[in-house]
Amino acid sequence: MTKLKLGRIVDDKPVKVTIELPAALHRDLVAYAEILTRESKQEINDPLKLIAPMVARFILTDRGFAKARRSQSQQKTSSGEA
């Protein structure tokens, strides 16, 4: 069994964003959706729905971003901002 970074896709109220993807990236999303469908037994009808969980996962696992965010939060707290 392949270990993918994404699991089941959570159905949440979306915010509409329009982007253009290179054709190669779109083909990769389609392939990823096919593999995820097989692995998770959850039908992925629209591969573009993978973009939000992928970006969320990227942000969640980006240590540099987490460190910068903590530092920013601490600076706001120590300066009295909420």
Rank of each mutant, 00 (worst) to 15 (best):
V17I: 14
A52R: 10
D46A: 07
K13T: 11
I9V: 15
T18I: 03
A24M: 08
V10Q: 12
D11R: 14
R69S: 07
L25N: 02
I35H: 02
I51A: 11
G64R: 10
A23I: 06
A82Y: 07
D28T: 09
E81T: 01
L60V: 03
T18L: 01
L4T: 14
V30T: 08
I9R: 12
F65H: 08
L60A: 14
M1H: 10
K13E: 06
A82W: 04
I19S: 00
T37Q: 01
I51P: 02
F65W: 13
L29D: 10
K5I: 10
V55Q: 01
V55S: 01
V10W: 03
A52F: 01
L6F: 06
R63F: 04
F65V: 01
S78L: 15
S79G: 04
T2A: 09
G7C: 06
D46L: 00
G80K: 07
I44G: 04
T2G: 01
K16C: 05
I59T: 04
S78R: 12
R57K: 15
A82K: 11
K41W: 09
K16S: 06
M54T: 06
P14R: 15
S73L: 13
V15I: 13
R63E: 15
R38S: 04
Q74K: 07
Q72H: 10
H26A: 13
V10K: 15
V55H: 01
K16T: 11
A31R: 12
T77G: 00
I51F: 07
S79C: 08
T18G: 05
D11E: 14
L36D: 05
L50W: 08
K5P: 01
K76L: 14
R63P: 00
P47V: 02
L25E: 10
D62P: 02
S78E: 15
T18C: 01
Q72Y: 11
L6N: 02
R38W: 05
